[in-house]
Design a binder for these strands. Structure first.
Lengths: 239, 239
DNA sequence: GAGGTTATGGTCAAGTTGACCTTAATCAGA
DNA sequence: TCTGATTAAGGTCAACTTGACCATAACCTC
């Protein structure tokens, strides 16, 4: 699989792309945005959305542009961070392609539009993808697995969990985000105690939201802190 | 997205390099390996060691090769991890260059050889570099700052601190590593308690090392754990 | 043997955690 | 209007962890 790219110019140049692992929670499940590839390689297979980095944009800007194109949601409502670079030779049969993977987190996002180039886009269950690897094009299985590990770890030490929540939310909603991502149930009372005590994690709005049944829940918004102190450790305990 | 890239000359190809932030502790200071650039751009300026990724090697392999070339130390004695991709347009005046930065940690490394291409290599104080930015070529100031932040954070939740220690070490040596990296003094007694209790962090060898003065210190080697549990939190307390 | 020096171990109050219990506030239906 | 179901939210308590500090051990040199 020699690279015609390389021959073209003489030195080892690479195509650089960004790929996005866009996570949200829908119907109580952690899901990731996938697109069905319309062209070779891997035509018909599912893949993470992404595209080429343009000549005059930063990597972050490229990721943000792709994010906008794929989700039609204002990207400043989403949390976006770089996950890392993936560049195994052979990850793309066309030749040397380096991709910079980004991780995006957002509140329950709309069903994606077709996208500008009318590729079919949909939400895929993260758990299902990781149980049966091989369903994604390129090394996107690997990227999704790394992204999930990253999110799980960051939930312990950062406040990014609020990125999965809308502007205002209840502590039960925030707890469920943790439970979904960590795949473990948490004690509601203890969670509440820690979330409200942690410095700048959540702020009470003073508002309430009536429930379908039961006592109305107090509403919160995210606080200014980006790091959780004290952290929320997921001790390796009972189920 | 579209895959017409193979036709090739009109598309946006990039030069991809790896840059290494190789940290060690020498003379009680956290230092990073620098090279004096021999060629434009930034000729004569200090920079992180690095080079082009070859056509058929992974990014990790490229980083490992550069590491070997620069330090003459067997790279499997060193901790190596990817820091991230840096690709702001204009970071390299020659055109679009994407670099994948790696972080390497090792025990007190030898004074570097000239290197294959006879560039001058030396250790620079990390603290000094960050106090006066602008002394490094490209965006290497930024990479060094990110690398330090990464190490400081990882010291809380992982066992990488042992990467700065030789095969066997004393708990005082390990504590000094923490103190150097965090820039804060730690209580020797409490540090010992936590280090020996943390699961799989250090293992007693049963050996002792006589000191220049005072009671001999017990020797330890690194344990099998990669994650620190419980973590070592640096609470934002007294000096 | 005295005193200096470094390693190592112990103590204790204050804080944190997980498990569990109790109370509050709402709704639906009898 | 009362009852029970349901969800939120607050309280209790024993076990554990933490930081600050004190005490002892094991070496050295003089």
């Amino acid at each position: 699989m020699d690279d015609r790219l390389v021959g073209a110019v003489g030195v080892e140049l690479s195509l650089v792309t960004v790929d996005l692992a866009i996570f949200t929670i829908r119907g109580g499940e952690l899901v990731v945005l996938l697109v069905e590839r319309g062209t070779e390689p891997f035509a018909g297979k599912a893949a993470l959305p992404g595209g080429r980095v343009r000549a005059h944009e930063t990597l972050d800007a490229g990721a943000r542009r792709e994010l906008q194109e794929e989700t039609s949601v204002s990207p400043d409502r989403l949390h976006l961070e770089q996950l890392g670079a993936y560049g195994a030779p052979g990850r793309d049969p066309r030749g040397r392609v380096i991709t910079v993977a980004y991780l995006a987190l957002g509140p329950d996002l709309p069903v994606p539009r077709g996208g500008t180039d009318a590729v079919h886009a949909y939400w895929g269950r993260v758990e299902g993808l990781l149980e049966n690897p091989g369903n994604l094009a390129f090394d996107h299985d690997h990227i999704v697995a790394d992204a999930l590990e990253r999110v799980r770890g960051e939930f312990e030490y950062t406040t990014v969990a609020t990125a999965f929540c809308p502007e205002v939310f209840t502590l039960t909603e925030l707890r469920r985000v943790y439970e979904r991502v960590w795949g473990r149930s948490l004690d509601p009372s203890n969670f509440r105690r820690k979330a409200t005590k942690a410095d700048g994690f959540v702020e009470a709005t003073g508002q309430q939201r009536p429930q379908a049944a039961g006592r109305p829940a107090a509403l919160y918004r995210r606080g200014p802190a980006r790091l959780l102190s004290p952290p929320f450790l997921r001790t390796a305990d009972r189920q």
